[in-house]
């Protein structure tokens, strides 16, 4: 499904990822934990194809294809979804219009018919009910004036609607109250299945109580220094990263 081998990447000439290797099988959920500045967001941007994040060594294969050779939008319609740590505001662009445009881009790529405004509203409203989002959030401009929690909910709405095969969640739980945290977990769990894999970046064990991962990795200074099962997250919660970093 996703195979990352010896990945090195620089940002502004600065080496951030220094030989990262990771394999995710179909249906698996992997959690990545690690200190601030260890390169977690960088990894998610490299996988999503953001400009300025330059791969200097290594390879990434996604569904047998060279992921690094694809444009960001090609990766997106091939099922790679990034839930942003800081979702971006698009003034004047209606949330519904944006999401329908995105949905239709993905549907076109899958050879499915596009949805019209009415069909879209039906689908979106059903999802929003589950996410406990008020209807008027569809009319508001994308993320403009949204609270931190609303922005994250909006990311989860997009993820649910676009139903990716590889979801990258970059600290989606940060700054959320316990109800919102459960909402994030519920959304991921609702997509969980043999054709859905996820890379969940988080600082906190508590999210992983709700999304039980198959594997947990510790990222430090651009490399994975430890891997284990869900119990590793609990250990880190108790001891902090320092012990693992020192042992590595």
């Amino acid at each position: 499904m996703l195979k990352i081998e010896n990945l090195h990447a620089t940002v502004d000439g600065k080496q951030i990822l220094k030989g990262l290797t990771l394999e995710i099988a179909p249906g698996e959920i992997h959690a990545i934990m690690g200190p601030n500045g260890s390169g977690k967001s960088t990894l998610s941007y490299v996988l999503a194809g953001r400009e300025g994040y330059e791969v200097t060594e290594g390879s990434v294969t996604y569904k047998g294809q060279d992921l690094l050779a694809m444009e960001p939008e090609e990766r997106a319609v091939a099922g790679v979804f990034l839930a942003f740590q800081a979702p971006v505001e698009l003034p004047g662009v209606g949330n519904a219009n944006f999401l329908r445009t995105a949905l239709n881009a993905v549907r076109r790529a899958k050879g499915e018919s596009e949805v019209d405004a009415i069909q879209f509203l039906k689908l979106a409203r059903a999802r929003m009910k589950v996410l406990n989002m008020p209807d008027d959030m569809l009319k508001r401009p994308v993320n403009v004036g949204f609270s931190g929690g609303e922005k994250k909910r909006n990311e989860m709405l997009q993820m649910a609607m676009l139903s990716p095969t590889l979801a990258l969640l970059d600290e989606t739980d940060s700054g959320l109250d316990i109800d919102a945290l459960k909402m994030v977990a519920d959304t991921v769990n609702s997509l969980r299945g043999p054709t859905f894999s996820a890379l969940v970046i988080t600082h906190y064990q508590r999210l992983l109580n709700h999304i039980v991962p198959d594997h947990v990795h510790v990222l430090s200074a651009g490399r994975i220094i430890r891997s284990g099962g869900p119990e590793l997250a609990q250990e880190l919660e108790a001891t902090g990263y320092a012990a693992s970093v020192a042992a590595a």
Binding site: G49, E73, A76, F84, V88, A102, A105
Partner: peptide, 19 residues
């Protein structure tokens, strides 16, 4: 803004148009 739109599957041209 462009990256956010493209990550959701929009071409760069459509992203500029939308913005």
């Amino acid at each position: 803004q462009l990256f956010y739109c493209r990550q959701r599957g929009l071409s760069e041209e459509d992203a500029v148009g939308l913005i």
